[in-house]
Design a binder for these strands. Structure first.
Lengths: 140, 140
DNA sequence: TCAAAATTTGTAACGATTACAAAATTATGT
DNA sequence: ACATAATTTTGTAATCGTTACAAATTTTGA
């Protein structure tokens, strides 16, 4: 359980007015760090924030990514997942159970882009396959 | 201009009946290697294949990716791009002009996944930023 | 406290993708 | 080659994630 105050000041430092719903959504992202979809955030926070609108979740996540306090993951074909961990790290998607796993990765482990004059501000390293749990069950 | 015969035998070798529309779509992917969306393939091939249906393009690409003669790229938030180059290589997306650029990359330049018992069968390395052309124009 | 600015809501629209049944094409056996 | 079965294609409708937008609400700051 993270202190509200810390999240409020963190948002404020990043140019985001720390409105109550924004604080709750950021708190959700940080505490669960489960790469949620918009629908997951919406349906789980609805219990805690009655009357929450899905549009607010969309708006808030767009704001978070534009201010770079969260990152959008395109590891699925059909929907965007979000991650409050903006440090470079890798993501693995299991094609059997659909789970998304983090793994640590330093920026300097990744090769530099061999294109002159390009500036890079986001690094995404996605692996797909079968996770250990599904393999043990003989799936995949 | 690639020989039809080569594409037909390539598809056949990969367990895909080399029906005429499939051959044309594969030929498009190989010759243009422009990471097209379904809509790009559909609208450009419509001139060459009158009566082509967009559903056929979707079906064919699903078949190609399941047989691993093409790879789906999730470098955009909203739509899937396709690449007939199934060898590992990197992709750069310019957030100004929306262009997608390839860059070479060996599998062994990428770090191994530090997760025991996981099997990996797809590697995606996506970078985002501003391309040299847009930077020269002072954009981004 | 009050008015202006910003945010949230709810509904409708949008666009990519999928479902599905009918029509067309291709493959198979004789 | 022919008939038939199996596969593929088509076109439309449905689905689902996301965005647009105007009205209602909340926040901000004088």
């Amino acid at each position: 359980m993270i202190d509200d105050t810390k999240i409020k000041s963190f948002l404020g430092q990043n140019g985001i007015s720390p409105l109550p719903k924004r604080v709750k959504i950021m708190q959700y992202l940080i505490e669960k760090h489960n790469h949620p979809t918009v629908d997951m955030i919406y349906s789980e926070l609805l219990h805690e924030i009655p009357g929450l609108s899905k549009t607010t979740v969309y708006n808030t996540l767009k704001l978070f990514t534009s201010k770079r306090v969260a990152v959008a993951l395109n590891i699925e074909d059909n929907e965007i997942r979000y991650d409050a961990d903006t440090a470079t790290h890798g993501h693995f998607k299991c094609r059997v159970c659909d789970g998304v796993f983090d793994f640590s990765l330093d920026r300097d482990q990744l090769p530099e882009i061999p294109l002159n004059g390009f500036s890079v501000d986001e690094y995404h390293y996605y692996l797909k396959g079968v996770c250990s749990s599904c393999r043990e069950k003989g799936l995949g």
